[in-house]
Amino acid sequence: MRIQVESRVKSLEDKTKIPYVVGSKSPTAVAINSASKAGEWIKSKLGMHQELNTKVSPQDLVTDVDKGAEMMIRKLILTHFPNHDILGEEGVAPGATASAAALSKASQSEYLWIVDPIDGTTNFVHGFPFFCVSIALAYRGEVIVGVIYDPIKDEMFVAEKGKGVYIHGNRGEVSKEANLSDSVIGVGFNPDREFGLPTNMKGINALASTTRSLRAGGSAALHLAYVAIGRLSGYYEVGLNAWDIAAGALMVAESGGIVTDTVGKPYDIGVHHVVASNGKIHAELLETIKAANATGIA
């Protein structure tokens, strides 16, 4: 496993480099290494979790594996960057208010790592093979590195600001659909039953009749990675958090796509309601969501 990870890091470092280097390791190398190691450990625990709890609703799950993976990632990052700050999903109390407070405090950091140890925990719990590790690094509030690792498919997505997005060293590009009617759009069934899910359902109902098809895999980060490499034309969901979006949003932008909030304002790490696309269908996608009163923004 060590040889495999080191080989992957070296290959991707050769293709994507940024000047934010401390010691012998770049942030990208550390993110790739952390995602690889955590992902392989998560995969080894599939069907073997020992604790299962809920957060904002009975549908919002967390396991001992989520917590263990985040602890592993934190240790790996802090070994190389002890002065950097980390915002991890499992280190924040459940609920939108707690998430907003944690992000507000963390956004003052010069270097902030944004970590979702398992994006798609419900899938992990049920053995549905669509979940990932998502790691991003923001410098003064701007995301500069994004890594998403799917341990089931062994697919590593890597982006650096200004350097493009890569999957196993191959450059990724967004899809070429020019019309919403020809597009496949990713959507989500948000676990927040009071606000997130009802709002998303309005958007889903509208998109179901205006797109070629919809896909709801259950991982925001993987959906965004798929937009970045052209597997999806776009993605829409209301009620997300920084750790769901940060790495994937950079990937979409670096592959030629567009990421905004649901009313068209440019993405930043405080966005909770997101629309990502190949760029060509973005205006039409926003218009459809707005007409359905599904932006989630008053």
Results as ranks from 00 to 15, higher is better:
277 S>N: 11
281 I>S: 03
275 V>T: 14
47 G>S: 10
193 R>A: 15
294 A>G: 09
32 I>C: 03
134 S>F: 03
195 F>K: 15
109 S>V: 02
104 S>P: 03
36 S>I: 09
242 A>C: 13
164 G>E: 09
118 I>F: 05
194 E>N: 15
182 D>A: 13
144 I>C: 02
297 I>R: 03
121 T>K: 06
13 E>S: 09
147 V>L: 00
87 L>G: 04
97 T>Y: 10
184 V>H: 01
236 Y>P: 08
117 P>F: 07
179 N>Q: 12
267 Y>F: 15
206 A>P: 07
34 S>C: 03
264 G>F: 13
236 Y>S: 03
68 G>K: 08
138 A>W: 00
118 I>G: 06
64 D>R: 11
74 R>P: 02
45 K>V: 05
109 S>D: 08
20 Y>C: 01
42 I>Y: 01
109 S>P: 05
48 M>T: 13
167 I>M: 12
227 V>S: 04
296 G>F: 09
117 P>H: 08
7 S>G: 06
126 H>G: 07
21 V>L: 10
126 H>M: 14
64 D>H: 10
179 N>H: 13
264 G>T: 10
170 N>T: 09
101 A>L: 14
113 W>C: 01
137 L>W: 00
201 M>Y: 10
164 G>S: 03
245 I>K: 01
61 L>E: 04
82 P>S: 07
246 A>I: 10
238 V>K: 04
134 S>Q: 04
251 M>Y: 00
26 S>F: 02
30 V>K: 00
37 K>Q: 12
62 V>P: 11
295 T>V: 12
60 D>P: 12
283 A>R: 14
38 A>N: 01
118 I>N: 00
93 A>M: 12
28 T>N: 08
19 P>A: 08
35 A>D: 01
285 L>D: 02
17 K>D: 04
183 S>W: 03
19 P>F: 09
79 T>G: 00
45 K>E: 13
264 G>V: 14
77 I>C: 02
209 S>M: 12
145 V>K: 00
109 S>W: 01
74 R>H: 13
58 P>L: 10
199 T>W: 10
13 E>M: 05
13 E>L: 14
239 G>K: 11
157 F>A: 07
2 R>E: 15
62 V>L: 14
